[in-house]
Design a protein around this nucleic acid. Structure first.
Lengths: 154, 154
DNA sequence: TTATACAGGACTAAAATGGTACTCAATTGA
DNA sequence: TCAATTGAGTACCATTTTAGTCCTGTATAA
């Protein structure tokens, strides 16, 4: 299904919630209440997002989380990477050389190109888009063979 | 990481192997040998691909698997769907109405649009592309807001 | 100094995934 | 018609990943 993990899904929802009131500081408990999810889980998600540099945290009374930068400068790829690690479709498209089947595989190169295209797509979607109630406008897909990714990337 | 499962990865490799010699019938054991993977696992993968209608199987002596249609008419999305089910990024983008958090979620619509764009991308990559040793040419990504997906799909 | 709120880590339960084994069914051809 | 070949189906187990909880520590504001 190529699905996001549930935590990643939560992360997106929570980030959107924060983005909609980006001036204020948000306590984990308040956010959990707002999005109707278990407190400890939301808390865990927030910690991961903060460690990835997408949120900044403030301890103590009146503390909480705020966006580390404007919502328009945080991408879907950032959020996914914060929870699941770098966006990559196959093992070998993240860690080079770990796969001892390269010889018999024969599709590695092409999967990596597809993977790159997906990452590009996810990088073109910002938190501002996600949080917006208006429909996102996504890049148009021109017919195949308009451009060679190999030329563009390598 | 938004990764494919290992079985899906195997499926792609095996399909590419078959596509490169699409005239012949391929026994599961031969394919396993060719791609250097455990027989039972390859066999399982082949069965799933056959059940999804991507391969046709022939029992008995001299039997084996063949492509159900030309490699240019089998897409990456087909292969992924055969093993993992329909391509969808979130729970709610496949089964409508199952999520009781719609009210507090606020990002469902937009995730679905992203999901659709990813599916479109995967549908634009065919088995013929994957099996080819030459680099795939992927659709060019024009700058955002060129076209509204909502207008295109809904 | 006390209440608030995040940080970090350990731990457990549940689910998905991957892999194996075994038996059955179909086809070919001797 | 029988034996060899090869896929089909199913049940099972091991491992890993994921999700969720809890506890203790630490920083901050009032």
């Amino acid at each position: 299904m190529l699905k996001l993990s549930r935590l990643t899904d939560y992360a997106a929802v929570v980030m959107a919630q924060i983005a909609r009131h980006s001036q204020a500081s948000h306590a984990a408990a308040d956010l959990a209440e707002a999005v109707q999810l278990p407190h400890p889980t939301v808390s865990k998600t927030l910690k991961m997002l903060a460690r990835a540099g997408l949120l900044v945290s403030q301890r103590g009374a009146q503390g909480g989380y705020r966006l580390a930068r404007p919502a328009s400068q945080i991408t879907a790829a950032d959020i996914i990477a914060a929870i699941e690690g770098p966006v990559a479709m196959t093992e070998c498209s993240q860690a080079e050389g770990d796969c001892e089947l390269v010889a018999t595989c024969g599709v590695a190169d092409n999967w990596q190109r597809v993977s790159l295209a997906m990452r590009t797509l996810l990088e073109s979607v910002t938190l501002a888009h996600l949080a917006d109630t208006a429909p996102i406008k996504l890049p148009v897909q021109l017919p195949i063979q308009t451009i060679s990714l190999s030329a563009a990337s390598a």
